[in-house]
Design a protein around this nucleic acid. Sequence first.
DNA 1: ACCTGAACACCGTTCAAGT
DNA 2: ACCTGAACACCGTTCAAGT
Lengths: 228, 228
Amino acid sequence: MCRMARPRKPLLSRDRIVETACALVDAEGLAAVSTRRLAAELGVSGPSLYNHFRTKDQILEAVADSVSAQVDLSMFDAADGRDWRTALHDWAVSYRAALTRHPNIVPVLARGPGRRPAGLRLADAMFGAMVDAGWPPAQATSIGALMRYFIMGSALGSFAGGFVDDETAYDPADYPHLGQAHLLADRQQLIDDRAFETGLRALLDGLALQYEQVGGAAGGSSAPAVTP
Amino acid sequence: MCRMARPRKPLLSRDRIVETACALVDAEGLAAVSTRRLAAELGVSGPSLYNHFRTKDQILEAVADSVSAQVDLSMFDAADGRDWRTALHDWAVSYRAALTRHPNIVPVLARGPGRRPAGLRLADAMFGAMVDAGWPPAQATSIGALMRYFIMGSALGSFAGGFVDDETAYDPADYPHLGQAHLLADRQQLIDDRAFETGLRALLDGLALQYEQVGGAAGGSSAPAVTP
DNA sequence: ACCTGAACACCGTTCAAGT
DNA sequence: ACCTGAACACCGTTCAAGT
């Protein structure tokens, strides 16, 4: 039919692999991703993937990075150091929202940014914003770390979902205070949302206290800097 | 030589399997634990394990629970509700210490207590102590959850170790604030320790603020209770 | 350049067989 | 009761072969 020799389009691309892998992880979990299964989902045979990624792990890393890329960083743009608290809050909420949209990939994200570009952009933006806001670099590093602990921990496993949804699971003789624990599974999202908000507020309140002691405001962009 | 027919001791026991599995996880990571490898370490063949555990996952659950059992809970014994802050601090430190002694099993622990006895004892003790200290049950649940987020997150992956130890890894053109990030890998433990202490202090400071608002002290054992 | 089938050295788990 | 070898249906990855 067609006389012109047109180049056949490749069946696969990195983007298509990452998208399909992400959908598979979301739908069936990390364990469901085998190279053969993923390839089948893409309509090719297993080894084909190795033309586009060096290992299966790099596919998962790419999925993780695509999730990191969904985190809003625009709150750090306003170079006004005075509002570090609001920025940190909004960033944390956006970060957690991205993770809870794809909870099954969190264990991969939790390994750290490594060489993943979106993960590094995220770390860079928040560290820079804290330093601009007047936090000493060592403290800004601590804030980056502790926010990460809290956010990853909150997304890694539901607290409520960690209990079994079975009335008879927790004998009051063994665990006198866990009588209602099996109910947690029901209201998972509500309980985890509330705990996250409570913890985030406590964290920010506590950091604000430390910010006063460190005299952070002096380093902000709206005041003369005292540190180099 | 021996005339008496003495019953031959079984080669395996649940305890010996758990101990060996824990040592293997510590030394070589979760990925190194296959039933065949673990069995070889124990001097038996792979399928033998199934006489003592129903699945490989249950072996890992048992390892995780043995780590939970190392967490000190004695600070919750003193039924004196007034010192919830100190108790919570000491508990968090002991919890994290247990996890960082066995970091490779943390992903399993992070799935939640489920039906693991030591994990449930831990949740029960801390929830009970917070309620005794005057926290309303819903708030005590939030505290249990948010402490868990923070502690698990801090143990799950080193923040510092999540960066690559390579001077050329982070181009300042791409990541203007990550110039020193490759140094983090060097001082991993120091940086993570400091971030944990900073975060824990902030969390407790923030919770103390909320405790005042909730009028928590009124429910403590040293004052007349106002709630049923 | 990109995809394939065959192959290698592994997996977790089951089961009939031994003691 | 507890351990074994053989077997099943899988893995991730390599590689020579095709286009």
